[in-house]
Design a protein around this nucleic acid. Structure first.
Lengths: 133, 133
DNA sequence: TCCGATTCGATGCATATACATCTATCTGCT
DNA sequence: AGCAGATAGATGTATATGCATCGAATCGGA
């Protein structure tokens, strides 16, 4: 099961990354912009939880995104926490990238058909929920 | 879809890797041993195709596995090709690791239920086939 | 109040991943 | 035979990923 998921992920990642390449963005980076766009300001740890991503992995990826100035970081009342949100240029970058992502997504959806698509989305999220506890 | 697959893959990988950690093996490495165990001797490129893995990624991972002497590499009649197979110690390592992998797999299967499990396996492989052309 | 235990995020290290490019080899055409 | 183009893998570089560990801040009980 793990191998099947990883193989599908490799194939999908190549396709989505290709669509985003003109922007110099990867799928992983786009996903973070997207979550922040939807969630507003959230703590580092919470973002890692949403993505089921180890917080140390997130630290590195945020550093790469931050090089472009797309993220604002604030200390929380709990001064160990870092609260993240998109900067204005981050919002602009997300708006620029969104159509490219959307196109890849729609193309794949058309290829698989909406029934398989919806079915899959549900099942995958069930697995993530089950495995991540 | 890409983000959902990647998130599930991260969660699953942590679980399978934990099961294999006592052996010093990762899930990716185990998968390669498994494919070679099933396939016998195959060329580098063919293995990459089976795994939907870029051949350059495979080169690095094979190098890591080869450090332990688990792989035999021969030149083909076409002297550009590298034919791979498990060495005797590679077969032994696979046999050692198999119960650990099996246990993680069975535990997950029990958690998800056979119906969801079989359903998912089919759908995931459909996606891989569709995306990898 | 104080101290041990916990939590948040960062760093060191190792593997996973792939694109661009390189070298060696092969294939087909002349 | 000889050369142009194609193909198999390897290498340079960058991102993705997470475990072990660390320092700082917080929390909870004595």
């Amino acid at each position: 099961m793990c191998a099947s998921f990883r193989r599908a992920s490799r194939a999908l990642t190549q396709r989505y990354d290709e669509a985003l390449r003109p922007l110099g963005l990867t799928g992983t980076q786009f996903t973070i912009l997207q979550v922040l766009s939807l969630a507003g300001e959230i703590p580092h740890g919470k973002l890692g939880e949403i993505l089921a991503m180890d917080s140390t992995t997130l630290t590195r990826t945020l550093k790469i995104i931050s090089r472009h100035g797309w993220i604002s970081i604030r200390r929380g009342k709990d001064r160990r926490e870092r609260w993240l949100r998109l900067s204005p240029s981050g919002e602009a970058e997300f708006r620029r990238a969104h159509p490219h992502w959307k196109k890849a997504q729609e193309q794949l959806r058309a290829q698989l058909g909406p029934k398989l698509w919806n079915n899959l989305m549900g099942l995958i999220n069930q697995v993530t929920a089950a495995v991540a506890e």
